[in-house]
């Protein structure tokens, strides 16, 4: 299976000398295209740091990261324009939907392709199609404040998918949702991953959704351990 994300021995150290904090001590991960994997671990274990490194928001100290065929980091950024990298290669889903409150649902989703220079009409058409696929097409003209939590998260997923990025990074996307809706969102992400051949990493604390992952990475003390599929759900510190 082709690799969607490949992370090799990524290290991130904040500060130096005696005050250095080793957030990541050599992380290795591989996520295939069309695959959804879970990333779990106790608070402070380095989950968010890994997500920020892979999301090109902070620079790792060393290591190598590849998205699809493109090496984006190899002991230094290999891409000049990190914003364009985030816009074109990575979709983000956050703990809260963080939709832009002054844009309607369609424009929240269409904003990314518009930023990439796509004509407004074309971007909106694509957004409508995606919203229909995610079953929120009927709320296309609504403002974010008029949506339920589940609908907002679906719109956030549509926004992450609109540019067809090879990678989606989801930071606790089910945290504000109840059990049924949380499972529905994970199911939706699985469907989208298969449909668009997208590699998805879901950082989560949510025990309800952990059993749904076929592969699971547990990060402890800055290192990842791949959990055996079907093994008992690991204990997660809050």
């Amino acid at each position: 299976m082709a690799e969607g994300i490949l992370i090799e021995n990524v290290v991130k150290t904040y500060g130096s000398g005696d005050t250095a904090v080793h957030a990541l001590r050599g992380v290795d991960m591989a996520v295939a295209k069309g695959e959804v994997v879970g990333l779990i671990g106790p608070s402070g274990s380095g989950k968010s740091t890994l997500l920020k490194c892979l999301g090109a928001v902070i620079e790792p100290t060393s290591g190598k990261m590849t998205i699809g065929d493109q090496c984006i980091y190899d002991n230094g950024w290999k891409v000049r324009d990190l914003r364009a990298l985030r816009r074109d290669l990575i979709g983000f889903i956050f703990q809260a939907p963080y939709l832009i409150p002054f844009l309607d649902v369609t424009d929240n989703v269409a904003l990314l392709p518009m930023l990439a220079g796509k004509p407004n009409a074309m971007a909106r058409k694509e957004a409508h199609d995606l919203l229909d696929a995610l079953d929120v097409g009927h709320r296309a003209a609504a403002m974010p404040s008029q949506l339920s939590g589940g609908e907002q998260q679906r719109v956030a997923i549509a926004r992450a998918l609109i540019n067809r990025p090879p990678v989606i990074l989801a930071d606790e996307p089910t945290a504000p949702l109840d059990g049924q809706r949380a499972l529905a969102v994970v199911g939706l992400l699985n469907d989208m991953a298969r449909q668009f051949d997208t590699a998805i990493i879901i950082v989560t604390h949510d025990e309800k959704i952990i059993p749904t992952f076929k592969r699971l990475y547990n990060i402890r003390d800055g290192r990842t351990v791949e959990e055996i599929p079907g093994a008992p759900v690991p204990e997660i510190a809050a």
């Binding site: 999301g55 914003r83 985030r86 816009r87 832009i100 990314l112 930023l115």
Partner: peptide, 16 residues
């Protein structure tokens, strides 16, 4: 601030 952080994260340029 949060919306601006999201806009920057998803690739909006500083000039925008």
């Amino acid at each position: 601030i949060r919306e601006i952080a999201v806009l920057k994260l998803i690739g909006t340029r500083d000039r925008t």
